[in-house]
Design a protein around this nucleic acid. Structure first.
Lengths: 340, 340
DNA sequence: GTGTCATTCTAACACGTATGAAAAACGCTT
DNA sequence: AAGCGTTTTTCATACGTGTTAGAATGACAC
């Protein structure tokens, strides 16, 4: 099924001019007489002419669209971030192309190759939980392709990065639990290869460092799929519950981990916070409607998306190679509710 | 900042061939000798050649990308639907471009013009709650541009449509409330101009038609922004609560309406379901964690996205104009929990 | 009438790819 | 070796746009 639109050539033929004259008239060049300009402009609006963006892309070697790679759109943090990304991109006349990895490294590589083949001008990425090898990103980066990391960043690659103070967020959450009198605080984090997991664990550790109870290794659990798979969370929680002394609080270090941990506890008939307290990273807008309302560490997702996009567009539109890179670190906020 | 990649021309020069020979060799044409083919192919993989999709788009008059317009990405129904859309699109080698209307008619028109200027091959749209005038969609449709409606469809335009049985979903939910013994059942729906609102109200009415208590007009509330704005929901709920006899149950006819209605009730200190029962459309995956766990009408969002995309791609790739249009109607499922 | 300059337009080309038509190369027959 | 058919390669063109260099025209001064 085809769909044709007017081109500059159509206008030229209709008015008996050459295509370049028409092109110039439309671009309001000074070397075209006012009379011709008006003639062309009038006819163009009459037939509803719009320049073909694809032809323009070919000519200008830019597509005016950016790629976004995240784990899951249907995750409140990412959908809010995309919201921010889209707002800035649209504002600057850029399209947004979205792909999901579902936490799979292979999908990330495939998606990246697909997007980067040349139809996008730059990339915003929060790497998948399965990403250990960085060759695909490094290769792209070395060719000078503009990339900005957000949320789950990669330290090894020098470019703009937008994240929250993960250490501080985890520290605050853990300290909150300590202050509430919990003694045996466990943590479930994403996989260890992600820097956000390591930072959040470090924050948790630091908070506990001031207490008498040092966290044993058994209290620290990693989740390969960052909580995406319920079964994995179930396993981690079960192991924690078998410990003696049994943990009286759990700190979950990512969005899916938090809600899935709650799901598991509920399924096991364990009451929050009477039997065990729960605090976690989450950007769900339903937390105050939960039972119990959840104490959460919230990230400024929308803002992160906006900033990351601004930095990316800056990178794309810069004439000379950028050598100085920003490292934006935003603050999390602890929303205290009944779960702790 | 530029980023250059190998072209067919580079290969041609390097091997002392013409560009067309290279092009044919890469496309495995029979009119090229096996020796040359191998030579070209080898060199191409060596320098990591990938055809420029933009040049291809220009040549073939198709961009291999589709546009998606929804109200809000950060809405569980839409993010799940996009998930389905993306899965099919990627599978067939199409990119997905996403735009949000935030329920604004003006944004819908602008976005549509922007996307349709010619960089997408087709459109999936769930119209905004503010959409009363359909000229922008009609104009596009009449020019033969492939469009598929999903969720919030438009009856006046003849094309593929994917939706749920809204009437039945609302009927089931209302009947459930009746069977539970509720006598004064109110409803809050999206704006009247949306067909889904009308259908859901009709289902609600039909269920009540068999009971003694006919619903007065005061029990039916419309929400201009489909529940997106809390304040609007607050107003509707307040009005309902002032009625005598006071409603003992509320049926909310969209995702945001449901959660925001719950929020309002909670803020007012009204207990669910003791003071008032609540049942609504929602695709949140947290409903069983809410307090109380919510009885909801769930839509097969992921599947809707998949089907809509399949139909759209079919439309795009069809050689002759399609005259027979599908009208896929999927079933909702009622998930009964403690809120009713 | 000629040279200089400014104005206004046109022709040719580029971006990267694909294709129908033409040309060249080759092998075979007579 | 000429003629013919077949295989292989090249040429020219197109997609829609923008730009560069230069041609044509006219105005003006000498």
């Amino acid at each position: 099924m085809k769909f044709e639109a007017a081109t500059i050539k159509d206008i030229a033929i209709a008015l008996g001019l050459s295509t370049s004259t028409v092109s110039r008239a439309l671009r309001d060049s000074h070397e075209i007489s006012i009379a011709t300009k008006q003639l062309v402009l009038e006819y163009a609006t009459r037939i509803n002419y719009h320049p073909n963006p694809i032809a323009l892309s070919l000519k200008e070697k830019r597509s005016r669209s950016i790629g976004v790679i995240v784990a899951e759109i249907a995750n409140s943090f990412f959908s809010q971030a995309i919201n921010g990304i889209e707002s800035v991109a649209k504002d600057k006349g850029y399209n947004v192309m979205i792909s999901q990895t579902h936490e799979s490294f292979d999908k990330e590589v495939m998606t990246l190759q697909y997007l980067a083949s040349r139809s996008i001008d730059g990339l915003l990425i929060s790497v998948s939980s399965g990403t250990e090898n960085l060759d695909h990103l490094k290769a792209l980066h070395e060719r000078g392709f503009p990339i900005v990391f957000f949320d789950r960043i990669v330290e090894e690659i020098q470019t703009h990065k937008v994240m929250v103070d993960n250490f501080r967020g985890a520290y605050d959450a853990t300290l909150h639990l300590i202050n509430k009198g919990y003694k045996h605080i466990a943590v479930i984090a994403g996989p260890e290869n992600l820097s956000i997991s390591r930072e959040r664990i470090a924050g948790y550790r630091e908070a506990l460092a001031h207490t008498r109870v040092k966290p044993g290794k058994a209290l620290i659990k990693y989740s390969r799929y960052a909580g995406l798979q319920l079964q994995e969370v179930e396993q981690a929680v079960s192991q924690l519950l078998k410990l003696r002394p049994r943990p009286d609080a759990i700190f979950t270090a990512s969005d899916k981990l938090t809600t899935n941990c709650m799901r598991v506890l509920k399924a096991k008939g364990i009451r929050i916070p009477q039997d065990i307290a729960l605090v976690g990273f989450s950007n769900s807008d339903l937390i105050e409607l939960l039972h119990p309302p959840l104490t959460v560490v919230r990230q400024p997702a929308f803002e992160m998306g906006q900033i990351a996009t601004q930095l990316l567009l800056q990178l794309i539109e810069s004439k000379k190679p950028v050598k100085e890179f920003e490292r934006k670190i935003l603050n999390t906020s602890l929303i205290v509710q009944a779960s702790s």
